[in-house]
Design a protein around this nucleic acid. Structure first.
Ligand code: MN
Ligand code: MN
Ligand code: ZN
Ligand code: ZN
Lengths: 138, 138
DNA sequence: TCTATGCTTAGACTTATTCTAAATACAGAA
DNA sequence: TTCTGTATTTAGAATAAGTCTAAGCATAGA
């Protein structure tokens, strides 16, 4: 399936410039959850002009802000980018560091859904929300 | 309950120096999931000698390596430290940024266990493990 | 064509973290 | 005790991710 990147960007309110298109194209083409520098390395050279790191960061931030991609953190301090916006979680292969998408589902079924192929060493749930009533301790 | 920090460090194979003790003491005394700089600010001045940032980082890394504390990432790119080593997850208050400990339990019970006080906006499960059989796609 | 706005660029800057080299501390050997 | 090797700490240099700045470029619309 060939992505219509131009339309994807337009419908999300991001003007589709050549730089942005090639960055978005790359993100949509991979499941590798690349870092900003991974994106920069993969994409420079695909344009007739030189590509600035600032543009990569500006574009990644814009795409995150507009909901085209998301940031993913697996190892402390490392930011990765993910064009898969479906409801899913991440499996980190502790041998290779690879980050694999895991479709969401009721959480207590994760083990079953994963099947024998994945041996869970540990997992961590991070919840984002609001505390109402103000009496939760720091 | 007064923590015996000296013994805690010793039993984990970390030689209890004054710098390490005061850092560990601070981590054990708070639920705030502080950053490295938070730790530095809180702890410098509690020693007769000056405290180096390098020592703070060295100590935090050593305590993580020895399993005395853990790293926690909630916002992309920000590393926090947590002396709570019980099996628990984290609730991030999206208004204040506060990180609150949530005891583990079967994951499908999380909503019930949290109760009315917490309004879940979203959550994310990160799983660490191994892929066996080698046929999982990146 | 003119102009305003937005986009991109190179490089400077900032900030978090690691590294380096020298000084200190100190446990154990003698 | 003193000696001595190893670990620890320190200040500051170095690195790396990310942001900011100022200038140039592109282009949509008047
Ligand atoms: Mn960001
Ligand atoms: Mn670390
Ligand atoms: Zn993903
Ligand atoms: Zn915690």
């Amino acid at each position: 399936m060939k992505h219509n990147v131009e339309e994807l960007l337009s419908t999300h309110g991001v003007k589709p410039t050549p730089q942005r298109m090639v960055i978005a194209e790359y993100l949509l083409s991979t499941h590798s959850h690349p870092t900003a520098d991974d994106v920069f390395q993969a994409v420079k050279g695909k344009l007739p002009v030189s590509l600035s790191r600032a543009t990569v960061y500006n574009t990644l931030n814009a795409l995150v802000a507009k909901g085209v991609i998301q940031e993913v953190t697996t190892e402390a301090g490392r930011v990765r980018y993910d064009a898969n916006m479906s409801d899913h979680h991440h499996f980190v292969d502790i041998e290779t560091g690879n980050v694999i998408d895991i479709p969401a589902g009721t959480l207590n079924q994760i083990k079953l859904e994963l099947g024998d192929q994945y041996k869970i060493r540990s997992f961590h749930v991070t919840i984002f929300g609001e505390v109402v009533g103000g009496k939760a301790k720091e």
